[in-house]
Write a protein that binds this DNA or RNA. Structure first.
Length: 509
DNA sequence: TTTTGAGTTGTTCGA
DNA sequence: GTCGAACAACTCAAA
């Protein structure tokens, strides 16, 4: 069955607007909340007992950080799943429209006689600007607008220091969060009244969200199951198989025991409240190993929360150094080096494995993200925003807050950032966290025949070993793009220059 | 206001 | 191979 095909409605029909606002329809505007459970906008709309219109708008008017290629792929499938679920559960059509929400929403309300609209907030700068204006305009027209929180455990304006400011350090931030009452998810509405009129809807396929020539999405299809059901299954699988060893296992890309919920979370196919409750319940069921690991896992959810709160309070996070002394950092732009990094040809196996995993599957293990990001920034001295942009386009979980927060953290320009001297050694990291080389062998197959001893540093292998492994360095696999020790010294020198600049600036005053 | 303790994820060097 | 110290100085959060 092609769920998307069922969305077509060929007839433009003027809705039967009711004059009695008591039975006038209301709109649920889906955005980054593509689920039925724990969806406060949907729940509130259903509870009103009036006809419900379910709407998704492909926003072509907001230019800032428009979706990357991998997230467009995910969105297509997630919308198809949402449409199918709405139809199956409530006999409700998901109406698809493309354009400027500021124009489309009042038009749809006019068309249908809808007098109220619900949506769940997106806590990103461009969305806030857009939605604030839309809300004001709709209210001027006399419409009721209600917005809700589906995306975060705690509202960004509620987590404050004792002095009333915003946290810039994670640990006290998370302590303050944990002091709040535990967030509780709500179930999907049991029933709701679907809007009876026929509504014109775009066909999902016409949005061209999927790649065609070439179709590079094969690796994504074999790796992911977008949609609310896929998210729930992923969470359950994680709790059953991996939560009990999360604290240590999370650092092992070869073991693959992280939750892999990031993209589901980004699209709101599952919410943080649901995850929170599910792992707490698993811990309470009595498995001591799970109980020991839950705190660590929740703190990762805490980092997601922290990044979102940071972005809310510091909206320039994706573009500008959080610490402005980094504006003087002596980057060394080099298109060839960036290309080698992007395509997984740096000559450092753990970095290349990660970059190829990303290209193939739209995702990279967290530990390897740090190593690969550190390499781009500190070994190659490329601006963190170059890496941020590549991740934005290639990650299925590309999320403005997490991506910006992560890159600034690695660069050392962010909140609570890594100290300048923390420069990952890609060889040592590989040997420590991929000890058997399984991860490298999977993603860099040309190295598969190398013995473990050389898998993370092939250039040190004797000629006979290389020959045995069928490897010609510089041909079938690159030599290291830069020498680790040399690059490390250069990075330290660059950071030293930054400090000197800062001292100079103080001296100038 | 001042003081104090602390701050996700590391590496290198020398004993 | 293992271990502790050094790598800076600063900012943040709270007492």
């Amino acid at each position: 069955m092609n769920a998307a095909g069922g969305l077509r409605q060929h007839r433009d029909t003027v809705g039967m607007a009711s004059s009695a606002s008591g039975s006038a329809p209301l709109i649920v505007w889906f955005r980054q909340d593509l689920r039925l459970n724990d969806n406060p906008a949907l729940i509130a709309a259903a509870a009103a007992g009036r006809p419900v219109i379910a709407l998704y708008i492909l926003d072509t008017a907001t230019r800032d950080w428009s979706m990357g290629s991998a997230t467009r792929w995910w969105l297509h499938h997630s919308l198809a799943k949402l449409a199918a679920a709405l139809r199956q559960q409530y006999d409700l059509q998901l109406t698809l429209r493309r354009g400027d929400p500021a124009a489309l929403l009042p038009a749809l309300m006019q068309e249908t006689g809808a007098t109220a609209i619900h949506w769940n907030r997106v806590y990103e700068p461009a969305s806030i600007v857009r939605d604030t204006a839309i809300k004001a305009a709709l209210q001027v027209r006399g419409s009721a607008v209600e917005t809700h929180n589906a995306a975060l455990l705690f509202e960004p304006w509620t987590v404050k220091t004792q002095a009333g400011g915003w946290f810039k350090v994670f640990t006290p931030f998370w302590r303050a969060c944990l002091a709040q009452p535990a967030p509780v998810p709500q179930r999907a509405p049991k029933k709701l009244t679907p809007y009876a009129g026929a509504l014109a809807s775009d066909a999902l396929e016409d949005w061209d969200l999927l790649p065609t020539k070439p179709d590079w999405a094969g690796g994504l299809r074999e790796t992911w199951t977008p949609g609310e059901a896929g998210a729930a299954e992923r969470l359950q699988d994680f709790i059953d198989k991996d939560l009990h060893r999360y604290a240590n296992g999370r650092d092992r890309p070869d073991l693959n025991c992280t939750s892999r919920l990031s993209a589901h979370l980004h699209f709101g196919e599952i919410g943080p409240r649901q995850i929170w409750q599910a792992v707490q319940m698993a811990a309470e069921r009595g498995d001591a190993r799970i109980a020991q690991n839950v705190g660590k896992f929740l703190s990762e959810l805490g980092w997601r929360e922290f990044c979102h709160h940071l972005l809310f309070h510091f909206p320039t996070l994706p573009q500008q150094n959080f610490r402005d002394d980094f504006d003087a950092f002596p980057w060394n732009p080099n298109a060839d080096h960036v290309k080698a990094w992007q395509t997984g040809h740096t000559g450092y196996p753990i970095v290349d494995a990660g970059m190829r995993q990303l290209w193939h599957s739209g995702w990279m293990h967290n530990r390897v993200r740090m190593i690969a990001a550190s390499f781009l920034i500190k070994h190659l001295l490329q601006d963190w925003r170059v890496g941020e942009a590549w991740f934005w386009d290639t990650l299925v979980d590309a999320n403005l807050a997490n991506n910006a927060g992560g890159w600034q953290w690695v660069a050392g320009s962010g909140a609570d950032a890594a100290p300048y001297f923390r420069i990952f050694n890609p060889i040592m990291q590989g040997e420590k966290f991929d000890p058997e080389g399984d991860y490298v062998r999977r993603w860099v197959p040309e190295l598969a025949q190398l013995p473990n001893k050389y898998i993370h540093k092939p250039w040190t292998a004797p000629e006979s070993v290389l020959k045995q492994a069928g490897l010609v360095l510089g041909q079938s696999y690159p030599l290291p793009l830069v020498d680790h020790a040399t690059a490390r010294k250069a990075a330290l020198a660059a950071f030293a220059a930054l400090r000197n600049d800062a001292d100079q600036a103080v001296g100038d005053e």
